[in-house]
Simulated scan of single mutants.
Amino acid sequence: MPLIKRNPFGHILFLKKIIIRACGVVSHARYRKFNSLRIEGSDVIRALPEKNVLFISNHQTYFADVAAMIHVFNAALCGRDDSIKNIGYIWNPKLNVYYVAAGETMKSGLLPKIFAYAGSVSIDRTWRNSGKNVNRQVKNSDISNIGKAINDGWVITFPQGTTTPFKPIRRGTAHIIKTYKPVVVPIVIDGFRRSFDKKGLRIKKRNVLQSIVIKEPLEIDYENEEVADIITKIEFAIEQHPSFLKVLSPKDAEEYLNEEAVLNKQREFWSS
């Protein structure tokens, strides 16, 4: 038995625990003092298996969304009911929690690199790089790393791949679901875009009601459901289907459909 325990990515678990504790203590007031966090679904978290779980969520900031989820997960596992009151839960955090993030984001400075050690599964985006649109194939190593994380524990992913609301779901998420067959748990968040800057590091507004709603796992026929059907399920589950918009202007509708068509063309890789 090794003296220094590591996860499948070679990260030292004790060091990861220290980082999560420190980040948890620093960030806690952002959800309890400067702003408030409404939580639903702690009972869903406690009923999940130890591993092979994929959380799918809409996305509003680079880091604040994930930090809040880690608070909520650990509080729920310590018996808190829809609350992160009393931060003692962060002392012994669940260490096999990961989140999928763009590699360029996680390498953009010292702080993101520290966050990456706490659980990032960094991937190269196939559609955007350094602020420019690109068109490149998915790296097999990225797919296998996400699978490795799912097999080891819980993985958070943002299937739209952007903090812009109502953008199309990336087809790769559906293929990962069909390939690795995880328990798929939808999460819907709100309020983070109003309270934080885009990175989720700076508080731009106080006294904002943030929310995290954890839904029951999706029912998915991994063998027989088509990718398109799973994508539609995801859109409705995380409340990012266009029907959730009260009014979709002709311009927005055209933009959405055009982007969906481009996405499908770019994702032909997955059908090969």
Rank of each mutant, 00 (worst) to 15 (best):
residue 175 H to C: 04
residue 50 E to N: 08
residue 154 W to V: 12
residue 173 T to A: 01
residue 171 R to Q: 11
residue 152 D to N: 13
residue 117 Y to D: 01
residue 120 S to F: 14
residue 72 V to T: 08
residue 47 A to Q: 11
residue 175 H to F: 14
residue 166 F to Y: 15
residue 94 K to R: 09
residue 73 F to N: 09
residue 100 V to W: 11
residue 128 R to D: 01
residue 158 F to V: 01
residue 70 I to G: 04
residue 56 I to H: 10
residue 77 L to P: 02
residue 166 F to T: 11
residue 68 A to T: 08
residue 145 N to H: 03
residue 117 Y to L: 11
residue 83 S to T: 13
residue 82 D to W: 05
residue 70 I to C: 04
residue 111 L to D: 12
residue 127 W to K: 01
residue 137 Q to V: 01
residue 83 S to Y: 10
residue 162 T to H: 04
residue 46 R to F: 11
residue 146 I to H: 08
residue 63 F to M: 15
residue 82 D to F: 05
residue 98 Y to K: 07
residue 127 W to A: 01
residue 143 I to R: 05
residue 81 D to F: 09
residue 57 S to T: 04
residue 175 H to W: 11
residue 43 D to Y: 12
residue 138 V to N: 08
residue 139 K to C: 13
residue 157 T to G: 03
residue 110 L to T: 13
residue 46 R to N: 11
residue 96 N to Q: 00
residue 120 S to D: 14
residue 148 K to Q: 10
residue 155 V to Y: 04
residue 148 K to H: 07
residue 148 K to M: 13
residue 154 W to R: 12
residue 119 G to H: 02
residue 55 F to N: 10
residue 120 S to N: 13
residue 129 N to C: 10
residue 87 I to W: 14
residue 35 N to A: 01
residue 118 A to F: 02
residue 64 A to P: 15
residue 90 I to R: 02
residue 65 D to N: 14
residue 69 M to L: 14
residue 137 Q to S: 07
residue 48 L to V: 06
residue 100 V to Q: 12
